[in-house]
Simulated assay, not measured.
Amino acid sequence: MTDFSDALSVSSSGLRAQAQRLRHVSENIANADTPGYRRKTVPFELESGGPGAAAGVRTGRVNLDRSELARIHDPSHPLADATGYYDGSNVDLVIEIADAREAQRSYEANLKMFDQARQMSSSLMDLLRR
C-alpha cells in the first residue's frame, strides 16, 4: 500500500503547488493596471520525502520580476512626474493567461493521477476482501 500512498502524496503535492501558482497568476492579472506593480513568479522545488519515501514538489519563495516597468504618458495622473510619465506594471496579460492555462492543465493532470491511484487502491481492497 505504500506505493499507492506515495502516488497520492506526490500528486497532492503537485495539486498544492499548481494551486499556489494559479493564486499568484490571478494576483498578477488583478494588478495588471496597478502603477508600480511587479509581476510575481513562483519557482517549484523538489521536496524530498525522506529515505524510502516518494519525493514531491513544493513552491519556493515568491520572486518579483525585475524587468523594466512600462512608462505611461498621462500628465493628469496623480503619480505622473514633471514630464507627464509614471511607472505602470510589468504584467503581460497574454503571458499570465498562458501561465494560468498551463497551471490549470497541470492541476487537472495531477487530479487525474490522484483519482487513478485512489481507484486502484479501492479496487485492490475489494479484491483482498473476497
Results as ranks from 00 to 15, higher is better:
9 S>Y: 02
41 T>Q: 10
46 L>M: 11
106 S>P: 05
64 L>E: 12
108 E>K: 05
89 S>Q: 10
48 S>N: 12
24 H>L: 15
90 N>D: 03
119 Q>C: 03
70 A>M: 15
112 K>H: 07
25 V>W: 00
27 E>H: 07
3 D>V: 14
68 E>V: 11
130 R>C: 05
95 I>M: 13
109 A>M: 08
52 G>L: 03
113 M>R: 08
104 Q>R: 10
112 K>R: 15
62 V>E: 08
53 A>N: 13
37 Y>K: 01
121 S>D: 11
43 P>I: 00
33 D>E: 15
78 P>Y: 07
23 R>L: 05
43 P>H: 00
55 A>V: 02
15 L>N: 01
50 G>R: 01
56 G>K: 01
122 S>N: 13
107 Y>A: 06
86 Y>C: 08
67 S>L: 07
130 R>P: 14
113 M>N: 11
65 D>W: 05
119 Q>K: 10
66 R>S: 08
37 Y>Q: 05
2 T>N: 12
113 M>H: 06
98 A>F: 01
114 F>V: 03
39 R>F: 01
123 S>N: 10
95 I>N: 13
49 G>T: 03
88 G>P: 00
76 S>E: 13
109 A>G: 06
2 T>E: 13
70 A>P: 00
52 G>W: 00
118 R>N: 11
35 P>E: 09
121 S>E: 12
121 S>L: 15
20 Q>E: 14
44 F>T: 10
1 M>Q: 10
58 R>P: 13
7 A>L: 04
111 L>G: 09
29 I>T: 04
7 A>V: 08
85 Y>T: 04
43 P>R: 00
85 Y>H: 05
44 F>M: 11
71 R>C: 02
107 Y>C: 04
23 R>Q: 12
29 I>G: 02
66 R>Q: 14
109 A>V: 09
72 I>H: 01
63 N>Q: 15
6 D>A: 12
10 V>I: 12
65 D>T: 07
50 G>H: 02
109 A>I: 07
51 P>L: 07
64 L>K: 13
13 S>C: 06
116 Q>L: 14
9 S>P: 06
106 S>R: 11
93 L>T: 09
17 A>W: 00
